[in-house]
């Protein structure tokens, strides 16, 4: 999905580390199956995928992954509650039409949800807007305003507040700054929101 570049690997590595061996996993917006493949082969998970692009789906199924073509905005409601141990949404929430509804579905379908997000509160993004007065275009957010698939940006603070509002517990978080260096700060801190280029969350419905 959307965000490209060499960064994606670290993001996926961290998610892989969080998932228990042999778990039941649904990867929403699984792209060409990079993460799902790693989870199935390294963590022996019972993995499924949902992907909007037919090209991505064909690549996945061609590798033996169980993936269906579908739209997170409309198709998640078909999955029964608690049918997966982990539902993963990697770098996709900002590209959905109804992020809040999606979040609700994720914690309903999975015992845990894992979400990774680009942070719109990252200092470089703020600077771009402040100094240039233009919509930020960075490595991680490499689109112009008129062609970006990312229609619902948020900051780490926005996301943390939404979780609180929805009664979703953040079990674990990981803030990655420039060059994917770990920012040693809690997710609800100002430091995380300033230095974090992206964030990973392990969530649970309370």
């Amino acid at each position: 999905m959307a965000i490209s570049g060499p960064h994606i690997r670290t993001d996926l590595e961290s998610i892989t580390a969080w998932v228990d061996e042999g778990a039941r996993v649904l990867d929403v917006g699984c792209g060409e199956g990079e993460l799902l493949y790693a989870l199935v082969h390294r963590k022996k998970v019972d993995g499924r995928g949902l992907e909007l692009s037919m090209d991505g789906v064909r690549r996945c199924v061609g590798q033996g992954l169980a993936v269906i073509q579908g739209d997170a905005d409309t198709d998640l409601k078909d999955y029964p509650s608690n049918s997966f141990d982990y539902v993963i949404l990697s770098q996709t929430l900002q590209a959905t039409r109804q992020p809040r509804e999606i979040l609700e579905q994720l914690v309903r379908i999975g015992r845990h949800a894992i979400i990774s997000l680009p942070n719109f509160g990252y200092w470089r993004v703020r600077m771009e807007l402040l100094l240039k007065g233009r919509m930020p275009v960075t490595d991680r957010l490499g689109y112009d305003w008129y062609n970006t698939p990312n229609i619902h940006f948020c900051t780490i603070r926005d996301f943390v507040m939404l979780c609180q509002e929805m009664g979703i517990r953040i079990e674990r978080s990981l803030i990655l700054g420039a060059d994917e260096k770990v920012v040693d700060a809690p997710a609800d801190s100002g430091r995380a929101n300033w230095w974090g280029e992206q964030a990973l969350f392990l969530l649970q419905r309370t």
Binding site: D46, R48, M54, V57, R58, C60, V61, L65, A66, V67, I68, Q69, G70, D75, D78, Y79, P80, S83, F84
Partner: peptide
């Protein structure tokens, strides 16, 4: 059919070929 299989959390892949 895919929706019905998802509704029971069955193992399903689905591709539409262009």
């Amino acid at each position: 059919v895919v929706h019905a299989l998802n509704a029971v959390a069955a193992n399903v892949s689905f591709v539409e070929v262009e």
